[in-house]
């Protein structure tokens, strides 16, 4: 599983950081999403799915390759 974020869309809701804190963070200076772990381990799959579903602006994508 690979994760992509479209930070230009992000509105800093913080949902991804809350739901999958080992994969996403928010920038200190702007509160915008930062991808900490682009290839999260399988045990993060569900948390990342929750984040994708909860992101209000569809700024997070999962790529299965």
């Amino acid at each position: 599983m690979r994760v992509i974020v479209h930070s230009e869309k992000c509105i800093g809701s913080g949902r991804c950081t809350e739901l999958a804190g080992s994969v996403f963070d928010q920038g200190e200076d702007d509160g915008i999403v930062v991808l900490v772990s682009p290839k999260p381990s399988d045990d993060q799959r569900e948390a990342v799915r929750d984040a994708v579903q909860s992101c209000p602006v569809s700024a997070i994508e999962i790529v299965e390759d």
């Binding site: 509105i11 800093g12 913080g14 949902r15 950081t17 809350e18 963070d25 928010q26 920038g27 200190e28 200076d29 702007d30 509160g31 915008i32």
Partner: peptide, 17 residues
């Protein structure tokens, strides 16, 4: 909207809260 909102997003970031 986005420019304006981004002046506030860090103040309400999850960890900051």
């Amino acid at each position: 909207h986005g420019q304006y909102r981004r002046t506030l997003t860090k103040d309400f970031a999850f960890k900051r809260m």
